[in-house]
Design a binder for these strands. Structure first.
Lengths: 284, 284
DNA sequence: CCTAAAATGAAGCGTTTGTTTCAACATCTT
DNA sequence: AAGATGTTGAAACAAACGCTTCATTTTAGG
């Protein structure tokens, strides 16, 4: 139930002063409820305690408690305009799950990419394309695969790009060579894994540059990261979505490709030649 | 000038910690700014003073001053429904790469998901949720990682889901057990790899059901596949994009989660318990 | 490598806040 | 009219807040 409904539900039990508070709230799109008790009381021409009784009558344990609920409510309302557009189009089409999913994904990507500022993107692209230092990549349970994919692209564009895997040599051991001017790219979304956090902290200890790709709740790594890119998680399933993070990844690839320039192109040609050499050798 | 523009205007002068605050604000539709200094600081993983310096850097006399401005700003946004659309105009082609990329990705996803018809989706979801047969997953050079991710989800929802990797046991050898009622999911996009094609043909020979996720140019596997899902490839870089394919993958997860129903939920609980058991055991 | 400058957070301060108590007031009942 | 019931705000209080100071850490330049 949203906040407005909650007020309407209890309005029969309101006293005159409480009705005045409700009026003030409605006339401000409920936003007046985010002010202080004193300010709201003044606007409704009632006293502080009356405002508090109002909040408690709505079933909240405290005034800040009510404000928290109200914030969530308003956040929903700010996010919903897209829902309206989505529902309109879904009436013409048949298949709700697909169109709904498309809207969720599009929305997540748009918000995620809009959040990225040019400066950060350029800085990250520079760091990833500069082959005078090494780049290490690592990710968590699911995000590891994104690290692998970025590695696949990065490897084509520049030398000294390494992926950290759990294997015979542990990621931590692999990082033993990381140094001052090197870069560690970490993909970490919620249920932030301790081992990944430790890894990032170790890299930071070695004074490496840490680039973090995470969700808006921010991995603990954000504290030590030099550059942070946040990606929405909204999915049509109960799980978190990797789609916006994948979009960010490919945006980075695009930026790095540009930044790598001629050097990168030459390297791709070399790799191509090497691959054909291998194929013709093993195929025969 | 609205609040978002004000942040963007000052963002070049931001320190890393301040950038993190900006990220948290944007990812909450700026609503996080109405919280207390301490709460906002905690969410951005910075200290209180940093939040105050952030507010003062934006030109506000105090934090409550900033909140007042922000409340007005949000009220304006609530009054006019054109929210996301209006934001582009306030920037007018500043960071074109990001907005352009967002459009490319959104379009790719929308076209891809609109193409999927309900029948195919349901059939695939049924096949993937039915644990009376085994499900094998495989992918190419890049798409392998998508197969891994789908496996990660599928494994949580049902038994007998296997990923084919190149290792000590080759994918081909691993498939030796595949039978009439089993399912092979293949991710294959252009530069269709021969080994993957052969694998699919082998599975078909064994009369298994083949589900193919590919690009609109269609992998050769489409000839033998029982169900085909096509995904656009348009990326902001010269490479092919995996974003729409990732979207399809997560759509499948959503559909399978629904189809798996109570059985799937029980399995998740079991896995959770097992994981905690392992943690408490190894942590001590 | 070292040093100057910038960035950041811990601790503490004074203020404001939300909250409680209780007396004054209004309204309704008999 | 007098009491009972419900409503309201002034005052006092403890908790939480925003804010300042300053030492520490981090970064950048020679």
């Amino acid at each position: 139930m949203n906040f407005a409904d909650r007020i309407k539900k209890h309005s029969p039990q309101f006293t005159p002063a409480e009705h005045r508070i409700a009026d003030v709230l409605f006339s401000s799109n409920l936003l007046g409820g985010l002010d202080t008790v004193a300010k709201l009381a003044e606007r409704a021409r009632v006293s502080g305690p009356t405002v508090l009784r109002f909040a408690s009558k709505l079933g909240f344990d405290s005034f800040p408690d009510m404000q928290g609920f109200l914030r969530d409510d308003i956040q929903n309302r700010l996010a919903s305009p897209l829902d309206l557009y989505g529902r309109q189009s879904s009436q013409t089409g048949k298949n709700t799950l697909c169109t709904e999913a498309a809207d969720i994904f599009s929305d997540g990507i748009k918000r995620t990419l809009e959040r990225i500022d040019t400066q950060t993107l350029e800085k990250v692209a520079d760091l990833l394309s500069d082959s005078s230092h090494a780049v290490y990549l690592v990710g968590g349970r699911f995000t590891h695969h994104l690290a692998e994919i970025l590695w696949g692209h990065l490897h084509q564009l520049r030398p000294r790009a390494y992926i950290l895997r759990t294997g015979v040599v542990s990621p931590r051991d692999h990082l033993v060579d990381i140094g001052r001017r090197d870069v560690l790219v970490v993909f970490d979304m919620r249920r932030y894994q301790e081992d990944i956090v430790e890894l990032a902290e170790f890299a930071k200890l070695r004074r490496a540059t840490v680039i973090l790709v995470t969700d808006p709740l921010l991995s603990p790594i954000a504290r030590v990261a030099n550059q942070v890119l946040t990606c929405d998680l909204d999915a049509p399933s109960p799980y978190d979505s990797l789609v916006p993070m994948m979009a960010v990844l490919e945006l980075l690839v695009a930026a790095v490709t540009t930044a790598a320039g001629e050097k990168g192109r030459q390297r791709i040609v070399e790799i191509e030649q090497l691959r054909h050499f291998g194929e013709t050798n093993s195929a025969s």
